[in-house]
């Protein structure tokens, strides 16, 4: 995993490999996020892509990945709401909910969380990934051993390695957190 900071610097310089890497890791979240506002999958896809276009057109103005992500989510939300305004949403209540900041923040919170877990877990080797997914689902070591047809001790070892790997992958987020903590403190 390339640290976010380097990635944004490369994107700003017009590095298309960096851009593609960023797009691939972030686009699914933005699309799923858009779908929380719009039922129509084609329009949601279009809007999510357009939000990346908006970012690309003004990439020089960003020097921080959080700002980029915030921008893309916000643009996506605004485009979705504009689209909703042109269509006739029958339920005013639903409309109000969609327009509230609260809803927007919750969606971003949720999408970002899934994205982080998903990319960290998916970066693991297949065997480790299975074990992590199963234990996230609440399976006990014994059950995992049975499921994967290995001994409980093997599960324990694999689990230990997988978690070590996962910890490494989530390291970046620790950094952000400490930074946050210092700023808040």
């Amino acid at each position: 995993m390339v640290p976010d900071q380097t990635l944004i610097e490369r994107i700003r310089k017009g590095d298309s490999i960096a851009l593609k890497q960023f797009f691939e890791s972030f686009y699914p979240s933005v699309y799923i996020f858009a779908r929380k506002y719009l039922k129509d999958t084609d329009i949601a896809e279009d809007i999510a892509q357009d939000a990346f276009v908006e970012f690309w057109n003004r990439k020089e103005q960003f020097d921080d990945m959080n700002a980029v992500k915030g921008f893309i989510y916000t643009v996506t939300k605004n485009k979705c709401l504009n689209h909703i305004k042109t269509t006739n949403i029958r339920q005013k209540i639903l409309r109000n909910k969609l327009m509230s900041d609260e809803y927007f923040y919750e969606l971003v919170q949720e999408e970002e969380t899934y994205r982080i877990v998903h990319s960290a877990v998916n970066g693991l080797a297949a065997k480790s990934r299975n074990i992590v997914l199963l234990s996230m689902e609440g399976y006990k070591n014994k059950e995992i051993a049975k499921e994967l047809d290995v001994s409980v001790n093997t599960v324990k070892t694999l689990k230990k390695n997988a978690y070590k790997e996962l910890k490494e992958k989530l390291k970046d987020y620790v950094f952000i957190l400490f930074l946050l903590n210092q700023m808040l403190g």
């Binding site: 959080n66 915030g70 923040y105 971003v108 994205r115 877990v121 989530l170 957190l177 808040l184």
Partner: peptide
Amino acid sequence: MNKMDTIFGNSGLIAKKIAGQL
């Protein structure tokens, strides 16, 4: 403190909590 930064920071926290890595 920017609201978005807080949200992104919290996402990292929640993700790590789920992965049991806090």
